[in-house]
């Protein structure tokens, strides 16, 4: 082994033409300049009067204001119902996918591939018209077909999320529980699933947010004004005289009022159910 120390002094003798710090400064200046140019261009070319009346028309907000709370409530109800179905079915599918029985694995994989591969709208149509006609059943409430249609689709995604969460729990956890004499089922319910659920909390909220937006697909079921959700309300307002872009914007804001708190809820849950320290 040759261990003669090499001398790097000559190579470092010259001064760098531009230090990394100066280069970063120059790069930031260019980025700010581009931003200012774009803002100025938009401010000069836009017709502000027209934008104001189209996007922020108080008349059109007043026209739908009284119906907004009910529509928002319907959106939340549909989301909650569909998510309940999706979570329960998703957990079952995830456990099926991890089962030692091959048939269960094949069934779960088939279900997941099928419902992930077809448009959710198609499933909504199926529950709205296809199934009632084929099986001669009638859904009394609109909530049931919504929960089933959207829940069955989201279950496919939730199943994969939960399966990944279960597999992310370290193998040593299972070994520790089993070495104490705990059965496979007891290990699953007391050691694996509680830890897996915490791991999947963020992606699960993501599913809830996606589902909130997917409730807009239920227009295909033919709603009555009492069962309008937000998107259906906004679409109806479009065709009214004082509707237009403002009502679409108002409905969009309502969606944000639902989805943004959902994200804060996850952060709060992560904090309160989190483990203290690191293991």
């Amino acid at each position: 082994m040759t261990a003669a120390p090499s001398d790097a002094r000559p190579a470092l003798a010259g001064r760098a033409r531009m230090s990394p710090r100066r280069r970063a400064q120059a790069s930031r200046r260019v980025q700010y300049a581009i931003l200012v140019l774009i803002v100025v261009a938009v401010a000069v070319t836009a017709d502000w009067g027209r934008v104001g009346s189209a996007f922020f028309n108080p008349e059109s907000i007043r026209a739908i204001a009284s119906r907004l709370p009910q529509a928002a409530l319907n959106t939340i109800t549909y989301t909650g119902a569909a998510f309940s179905v999706g979570l329960a079915l998703g957990l079952v599918l995830a456990l099926m996918k991890l089962s030692t029985v091959r048939v269960y694995r094949v069934l779960a994989t088939g279900y997941i591939e099928f419902f992930r591969g077809i448009p959710a709208l198609l499933v909504v149509f199926a529950f709205g018209y296809g199934i009632p006609a084929a099986l001669e059943v009638r859904f009394e409430s609109v909530i049931l077909p919504i929960a089933l249609a959207l829940g069955m689709v989201s279950a496919a995604y939730i199943a994969e999320t939960i399966r990944a969460g279960i597999q992310a729990v370290p193998k040593g956890q299972v070994e520790a529980a089993r070495s104490l004499g705990m059965s496979a089922r007891s290990t699953l319910t007391h050691v694996v699933v509680p830890q897996a659920l915490r791991i999947v909390l963020p992606p699960l909220t993501n599913e809830a947010v996606l589902l909130t937006k997917d409730t807009s697909l239920v227009f295909a079921l033919g709603l009555t004004p009492a069962t309008y959700e937000l998107t259906r309300l906004g679409r109806g307002a479009l065709s009214e005289a004082d509707g237009g872009m403002t009502s679409i914007l108002a409905v969009g804001v309502m969606y944000l009022l639902i989805t943004i708190p959902l994200s804060s809820l996850t952060r709060w849950l992560e904090r309160t159910t989190g483990y203290k320290g690191h293991v």
């Binding site: 040593g172 956890q173 520790a176 070495s179 104490l180 705990m182 830890q195 915490r198 483990y275 293991v279």
Partner: peptide, 25 residues
């Protein structure tokens, strides 16, 4: 059995780590 990586249950307190299997098994 005692493992190299301890494998304590991170979602349970120290006491619960010691009582879980006693209760379940």
């Amino acid at each position: 059995m005692v493992f190299q990586q301890f494998n304590l249950f991170p979602h349970r307190s120290v006491l619960e780590n010691c009582t879980l299997a006693q209760r379940q098994v």
